[in-house]
Design a protein around this nucleic acid. Structure first.
Lengths: 206, 206
DNA sequence: CGGTAACTTGACCGGGCGGTCAACATGTCT
DNA sequence: AGACATGTTGACCGCCCGGTCAAGTTACCG
């Protein structure tokens, strides 16, 4: 590989990392090239597809963060605390980093490394859940697939909420963990969104 | 208004209603015109904007269905059952009718009648929640805004899930209502999605 | 300092969208 | 029947996307 191509690849990776984390994994490739100060033809030449670019730019990052969260969960003394902490942590990632939200929420079958990350992550959640099942703290009918479903549905709004600087998405986590029935409920500490705030969120949520 | 314009308006309303309910309130206006067998120019001429078309086609439908659900909830003897039933019913609407999902989930500020429907619906939710607060069955920190947040995050995946014929989204409702902690958990009856099923859902979820 | 291989570029393809408007067609009313 | 108002049409605008490729440029090696 020639030196200039090397440099361009670096510039493109940086631009892609920035834009992926700012706006998610769906940003247009032409825009990435634009931000990198390079023709979009070059991007196609060097990477060939969005999946390949994602794989190079996001897979390691995602693996690091997700496995750290999983490791913390499994290291926890209390299986329930480990599970609850994991759920919370992953939601924090989703809320603050659109790219990571998309990693869990979208699928890119041709990004093989990223797919491996997803598989590992799924296996880790199964272990975390199994541990909490074993000590009886987690309802036995809750599965890793349920967790993924929750994460996927939660991601877009959490992202949009966090983008406004609000923490309101944490309320949903609390509800999910505690349940809505008063007898077992623990009070949430974060303030609810006002109707106006929610309206604004929903409008800008494309 | 000339008779042919009248006829075209009818055709367009019908096509719009079909497409909105099949694919949500974001379908392209040109496609609606195409299905109605009419030029898109005519659509713009007769309705002027997507909001106006939505207002004519969806507002009444939404009002009817939402207020029926709310009325049922408030008529229920048991405040908790009313609340839980309302949540479930609204989620069923979201799952089976993309247009209704969008009504609660997106905002169309220029569709004045629809906005009124949303406001009414929000007020009804507040009443349903207040009733459940009063008899102590619903945790006091849960608000109408929280419910809306939940509905909005839940809608896209519920729709995608239901489109595959699965009922798995109901699990999330159960979890939300019961909480995840085993001591109070009630077992869900619907089967969990397999990882493959979830993958497929997430791929096709644009 | 060549000359070749490697690389970059941007015009171009086909597709989509929302939206506008001059030219044409048709309903309607006298 | 005629003529005017009312409607319809589809080409056109500007914008976006993913993707390709001939022509031009640049790095590198001998």
């Amino acid at each position: 590989m020639r030196a200039d191509a090397q440099r361009n690849a670096v510039k493109l990776r940086e631009a892609a990392a920035d834009l992926f984390q700012e706006r998610g994994l769906q940003v247009s490739l032409k825009e990435i090239a634009r931000r990198a100060g390079v023709s979009h033809g070059t991007l196609y030449n060097l990477f060939g597809s969005r999946e390949a670019l994602i794989d190079e730019v996001i897979a390691d990052l995602a693996a690091t963060r997700l496995s750290a969260a999983a490791a913390r969960a499994l290291a926890s003394e209390d299986a329930w605390a480990g599970f609850a902490g994991y759920l919370t942590e992953v939601c924090e990632l989703q809320a603050t980093d659109p790219a990571l939200g998309d990693v869990l929420t979208r699928r890119f079958p041709d990004a093989s490394r990223l797919m491996a990350v997803c598989d590992n992550s799924y296996a880790a959640t199964e272990a975390i859940i199994a541990r909490a099942h074993q000590d009886g703290s987690l309802r036995p009918d809750f599965t890793a697939s349920d967790l993924l479903f929750f994460l996927a549905s939660h991601a877009p709004l959490a992202r949009a909420t966090a983008a406004t600087g609000s923490d309101a998405w944490r309320r949903q986590i609390t509800f999910m963990l505690d349940g809505l029935r008063a007898p077992t409920a623990v009070m949430v500490e974060v303030a609810a969104l006002s109707p106006e705030e929610i309206n604004r969120l929903l409008i800008q949520e494309s």
